[in-house]
């Protein structure tokens, strides 16, 4: 069972209290009607699917809020979690 830290509740809780919500930092198109078919494909379907550090969204069912996480997809270890809207963290800094 994964243990996940909710950055809003500031508590580390079991995976069953959380819902995975896909890759993070995918911005909705600002001007949707201007997008080409290829750009729509990239937005809707193409995913990084990283083997290693993966930036992803989770929702804490307890507080109902979305947040972001960096997780190693080989070890499943969480590197850090941070609030929605914050930029992608520099993981070297987080490790120190």
């Amino acid at each position: 069972m994964l243990l996940i830290n909710c950055p809003y509740c500031e508590e580390t809780l079991p995976e069953l209290e959380f819902a995975y919500a896909g890759e993070a930092h995918i911005d909705r198109p600002a001007d949707p009607s201007a997008l080409t078919d290829e750009e729509w494909r990239d937005f809707l379907f193409i995913r990084t699917n990283a083997r290693g550090t993966h930036f992803e969204r989770w929702r804490h069912i307890g507080c109902g809020r979305f947040f972001n996480a960096a997780r190693d997809t080989v070890s499943d270890r969480f590197l850090t979690t941070y609030k929605a809207g914050q930029p992608r963290p520099d993981l070297k800094e987080a490790a120190e």
Binding site: Y20, H54, T73
Partner: peptide
């Protein structure tokens, strides 16, 4: 599992 992974393990729940 609900999350992407390359771990070839999966969770017990």
């Amino acid at each position: 599992d609900q999350y992407t992974s390359y771990s070839q393990r999966g969770g017990l729940p």
